[in-house]
Amino acid sequence: MAAPTRSTVNGSAGHSENPSTVQTLTIGKAINLGLRTAMESDDKVIVLGEDVGKLGGVFRITDGLQKDFGEQRVLDTPLAESGIIGTAVGLAVRGFRPVCEIQFEGFIFPGFDQIVSQLAKLHYRTQGKIKVPVVIRVPFGGGIGAVEHHSESPESLFAHVAGLKVVSCSNPVDAYWMIQQAIDCDDPVLFFEPKKLYHMGTLKAPVDTTVTPTPLFQSRLLREGTAATLVGYGPSVKVCLDAANAAAEEGTELAVIDLRSLSPLDLTPVFESVRRTGRLITVSEAQSESSLAAEIATRVQQECFYSLEAPVLRVTGFDTPYPPAKLEEYYLPDLDRVLHAVDRSLAW
């Protein structure tokens, strides 16, 4: 298989019918293949994180990369998240394109200072003289029955920081392309991966490595609908689609939009859909207060004020720390909570 060139990643390659370029992959395998492809096409791409080498990461997302690219391109780092981010900044200044793995989202905070103070601001501080093309991969979200700090959704904290870009994939095709596009981006990118879905066999999908991918910072309408619009990202996209399928059986057509990019937000498809449906429900595992869901609601009321038939509703985690996992089924948005919100919206 020929490694795609940069222009492929940027979406200028033609379409190919060659079936050998299609592999059926889980999200986890798709990210792995995307990383491999990026490393093959640019020797400045290096991977660093805890246990990413021999072990292949605790989720095996970097499986096999150190074996094939060596210890200087796949670094098992000391256990220090500020060190991972802080050295990645320096490596980027030197001309590398580092891809950091944070083992679980709850462990990113020792590196938060470097992300906010250096990674996000160097380009602005130097007025473009220094670029820091660093990708930080972050497995996030709950539903895996884990102990504390292993199930959180802190993406809004990063979307709030000027200078960072934040994306999240929800399916294998996006996972394959988006990781490469994030690596190719000259800005720092937080790449949130839905860990619960990494190895979910039912989400396996054929990934054609030769098609033209959707640009990284665009959202995508996954399903047309007339009754209400659902917006999700990462793990909540599956919840939205499940809810839409269930509603369709009862004759209610719900539109579903996968945000994909959390910063910058591409809300044009959301506005267009809300103008048709008049109703919007945002779905996310994160807490609702001061969240992306709140930002979306604000923008929709600015852009679609006269189209709205009901207030924008949010189906999210509660405004609490993530609870003990025995309670997470109550905490996480699921099909029933989404449909309950749809009913409330329709009854307004």
Partner: peptide, 11 residues
């Protein structure tokens, strides 16, 4: 200090 360390690792 960490940024410098990364740069030096790059060297």
């Amino acid at each position: 200090v960490l940024n410098a360390c990364g740069y030096a690792m790059g060297q």
